[in-house]
Computed example of a mutant assay.
Amino acid sequence: MRRPPALLMLAWGAALAGGAEAQDCRLALVLALDVSSSVDASEDRLQREGLARALVAPGVREAFLAGDPVALAAFEWSGEHSQVAILSGWELVTDEADLDRISRTILDSRRSRSNLPTAVGAALGHAATELRNAPACRAKTIDVAGDGVHNDGFSPRLAYENFPLADVTVNALIVGGAGGEDARLVAWFQAEVLHGPGAFSVYTRGYDDYANAMEAKLLKELELPMVGGVPLDGAAG
């Protein structure tokens, strides 16, 4: 019998109960990569290389370092019970060396499984546990990349009802393909996955352009909030 979300939350209770020491941090950003069976080996390599490249692109470097630090976590997801860390815990980005190290770690990573379905709800639940262990940042964002709709376990809607995600923004990088279902895929992500103020999606036709799409999304996620024309972090001009 499949466990309902409430019992799954109890199973993850120890992780949810944890916390991290406060940091002067502007954003806790969780990167979630799809490694379900719809993603073949070459596509998985392209998404890891694309994310690694995007993190060290000149504009993204500048955005990361233009103000208080950003905390990063990353994991791969597929089936309901398959979420595996890519980074070993939270990484606080304070300088270019941090970005270089994180980029290399992602580039050198290898997927854990390749034969499981697409459990977007469980990916969101796992991201919620990651955020409970994050530094005390002023904003929280989950960045879900995927090329298919949910088909395993509890739904994204139930994840939002049962996990502490009320103050979290969830954005999406939607990867299309050669088929004719891209419009439906985009509509599903926008209706079921995007969450919170300012949530948005970026669409890319395929994994060949993953790096550019990820770079565009990171640049938007790392924009400094403005008050009266002055960034909150004081990084004017």
Rank of each mutant, 00 (worst) to 15 (best):
A183L: 08
R184Y: 08
T94A: 12
G125Y: 11
A97T: 12
C137W: 00
N162W: 11
I102V: 15
A119E: 02
G67I: 02
E130V: 11
L55Y: 11
P164I: 04
D152L: 06
S42R: 15
N171S: 06
R48T: 00
E62F: 07
E96I: 07
L87C: 07
R138Y: 00
C137L: 01
A66N: 15
F163W: 14
G50Y: 08
D182W: 04
D40M: 03
E62M: 09
E130C: 12
H126G: 02
E43Q: 15
D182R: 13
E181W: 12
A172S: 15
G179Y: 05
A159G: 06
A166C: 02
I142P: 03
V56A: 01
Y160I: 00
R113E: 10
I102Q: 02
G179V: 00
L72K: 04
E130L: 14
A166G: 13
R104G: 06
T169G: 03
A159C: 06
E91A: 14
V144W: 05
R157C: 01
A183P: 01
R138I: 00
A119H: 04
S114H: 12
P156D: 05
A41Y: 10
T169P: 01
S78E: 02
L131I: 02
N151H: 10
E62W: 07
V120P: 02
D152Y: 10
S112W: 10
A139N: 07
L46Y: 08
V70S: 02
E96L: 15
V56M: 04
I174Q: 06
I102S: 03
D68F: 04
T105K: 13
G148S: 14
V168Q: 03
R111D: 05
S42F: 08
A63N: 04
S88W: 05
A57C: 08
T141H: 11
L55C: 11
V60T: 15
S155R: 12
R157T: 14
G146S: 12
D44P: 00
F64K: 06
W90G: 00
V149T: 14
A183R: 14
A85N: 13
N171F: 08
L99S: 06
G177H: 09
A54L: 07
F75K: 03
R184L: 12
T129R: 13
A73T: 04
L65T: 04
R138P: 00
R113W: 10
G146C: 04
A74L: 11
E49P: 01
T105W: 04
G176L: 10
E161A: 15
S42E: 14
A122L: 03
A57W: 09
F75R: 07
L158T: 09
A97K: 13
D143A: 05
L173K: 02
T94V: 07
G153N: 10
V56Q: 04
E43I: 05
N162L: 11
A41G: 07
L173V: 09
R110D: 11
G180P: 09
H81W: 09
G180F: 08
